[in-house]
Design a protein around this nucleic acid. Structure first.
Length: 214
DNA sequence: TACCAGGAGAAAA
DNA sequence: TTTTCTCATGGT
């Protein structure tokens, strides 16, 4: 796992995740990016920032139709508004201050986030890692695909097993685990796409890149 | 044209 | 319990 991190870091350099100006923006972005490209989400967030709409309060106050229009470019705009609303309702219990929410220990924080409709393990761990600086590896399709091609797991290995594998191999360091996830996403976009044949893959020990397996 | 993107949850089997 | 379907726009 260290070798993978070093290889990816050498190839791509620091990724500077999560690209957000505040924890509030980070949490909103985590919902918006679900099953969507960051390119689309980034432009929407930029618009929201310019209009000073990146606020849990305004998510609660403005009518759904307004948010549907604002979120339209990222897709799933009705679903994502509903999820943002659920998150904003939850944050009202913490005066809309992520810093208040993040005072809890990691386990109860994760359970609380997972209890919010629309926040699953990946989104919860992203908020914990990048928002609250907790040492949790975010498992996504890119990680599963890469580890599968490295023959460290299969394509149906579940989230918890993959996460535990990474946690067992690396120190409990939020910056390190966050950087690894970001590097894997960057690598996935460039060389490890779903139906790609890994052209130009910088991982010398990847069986798929070597053509050993498909 | 078809596939895919920094998922999650409900419904069906 | 596991698999399938739904949500939806935009880039490649």
């Amino acid at each position: 796992m260290y070798r993978l991190f070093d290889t990816l870091f050498t190839a791509y350099g620091p990724q500077h995740w999560w690209p957000a100006d505040s924890s509030e923006e980070m949490m909103i972005g985590a919902i918006l990016v679900q099953n969507s490209s960051w390119q689309q989400v980034s432009s929407v967030i930029q618009q929201l920032r310019q209009q000073q709409l990146l606020s849990f309060l305004l998510i609660r106050q403005l009518p759904a139709e307004t948010w549907w229009q604002l979120l339209h470019p990222v897709g799933f705009f009705r679903v994502k508004h509903r999820r943002l609303k659920a998150l904003a309702d939850f944050m009202a219990h913490f005066a809309d201050q992520p810093s208040q929410l993040f005072q809890s220990d990691s386990q109860s924080l994760r359970q609380a986030l997972l209890a919010i409709p629309g926040i699953g393990k990946e989104t919860a761990d992203a908020i914990l890692c990048y928002g609250a600086q907790r040492p949790l590896f975010v498992v996504d399709k890119y990680a599963q695909r890469l580890f599968s091609r490295l023959q460290w797991c299969t394509e149906i290995t579940d989230y918890d097993t993959i996460q535990q594998m990474v946690h067992a191999a690396l120190p409990a360091d939020a910056a390190l685990l966050g950087e690894l996830h970001a590097l894997i996403v960057q690598h996935g976009k460039l060389h490890c796409r779903k139906q790609a044949n890994c052209p130009g893959c910088p991982i010398p020990f990847c069986p798929a890149a070597l053509g050993i397996v498909s």
